[in-house]
Design a protein around this nucleic acid. Structure first.
Lengths: 181, 181
DNA sequence: CGACGTGTGTCAAGCTCTTGACGTGGACGG
DNA sequence: CCGTCCACGTCAAGAGCTTGACACACGTCG
């Protein structure tokens, strides 16, 4: 550990800072969710279902930034625990609308409180305006990265307004497996 | 997929936006690094070594936000490919200082260009001031999350200044699994 | 001088997630 | 009316990472 190498370009990279913050957030969330016996994907799933009941497995997967298979496994585990319910037959297409059970809602409430505390701690040094701007900038970055990779929606992506919502979870969440063809 | 459920609190959460941006960035980086036959951890390792030669495996692990074992596996693969060199015996402690080979430096150059392009695309809608502020805010968030596991107070400095550098990689890169005992 | 704590490298095991491919049900478009 | 395309769900396999535990070296303190 010599005193060489001050701050390199690494610390100047936004991507590195993003990875660092995401890693720290994930670790803190994992630690906070451990007492509730929930992993981060499981919590994401519950939170998604709490705010948008009736989502399908694929929608949840996109919302939690994992693959459909992973979300299916998570969903299966939650279902075995009695936290979510899925009808055996699809009412409309092939999508099975998932919903929270009372137990699931209770678990979500506890987990959400813990996660909210973590997020507050993360943002403790930032003012309200800075938080809002940070959120918007992150969404902008994600939107800018989602578009040109394959050629989906090109129009927006830069504005502060997130014009999503009509679809399942968020229009900007199409990554992680689209596979151009 | 009916047109229900506008934008929920999910879109208002900074943590969610952070996860979204990190996921998009990782996907884009993975796609950009595929032609070079490098994974994201491998690239992180090379980039770290390129900017701070002589780092040990543990230092690299902290810098890439993975465990020592994972970084050791990455390092082994890179060493087999002839991209990095590690002395068989430790000169000082037990730490083996790793360095880049010419081939590794060449691979790093190509990969770094691809990653830089991705980062530029990600930040295409943000001005220089916004980028700098985003980077600082992210570092602040990571710092605020790194310190207090659950015991320390909330009043952590976490200013914009990153007073790290003398040690391995960055002082803010706390352990991935401290596990107090 | 010897004991302790810290940090590092390594082995082994387990798990989760990703990648790849398949079959099926609905929605267009000819 | 039928063919094509797209989306959802599922199975199987593989790789990657994390967890847990061990042995060794250095610095420090009693």
């Amino acid at each position: 550990m010599d005193g060489r190498a001050g701050v390199g370009p690494l610390e100047e990279s936004v991507g590195y800072a993003l990875k660092q913050a995401a890693s720290a957030l994930r670790g803190a969330m994992d630690a906070a969710l451990r007492p509730v016996d929930l992993t981060v994907p499981q919590y994401s799933c519950l939170e998604l279902l709490g705010q948008r009941p009736g989502l399908s497995s694929a929608d949840l997967a996109r919302g939690a930034f994992v693959t459909r298979q992973a979300m299916n496994g998570v969903l299966r585990g939650l279902q075995e625990r009695g936290l979510v319910t899925r009808p055996a037959s699809a009412p409309h297409g092939r999508a099975l609308p998932t919903e929270l059970t009372p137990a699931g809602r209770a678990a979500l409430e506890a987990a959400s409180a813990a996660v909210r505390a973590v997020e507050q701690r993360m943002l403790t040094a930032l003012g309200p305006a800075a938080r809002l701007r940070l959120r918007e900038d992150l969404a902008t970055c994600a939107g800018a990265l989602a578009g040109p990779g394959e050629g989906a929606g090109t129009g927006e992506g830069a504005g502060t307004g997130e014009g999503a919502g009509s679809g399942g979870v968020s229009a900007g969440a199409r990554r992680l497996r689209p596979r151009r063809r």
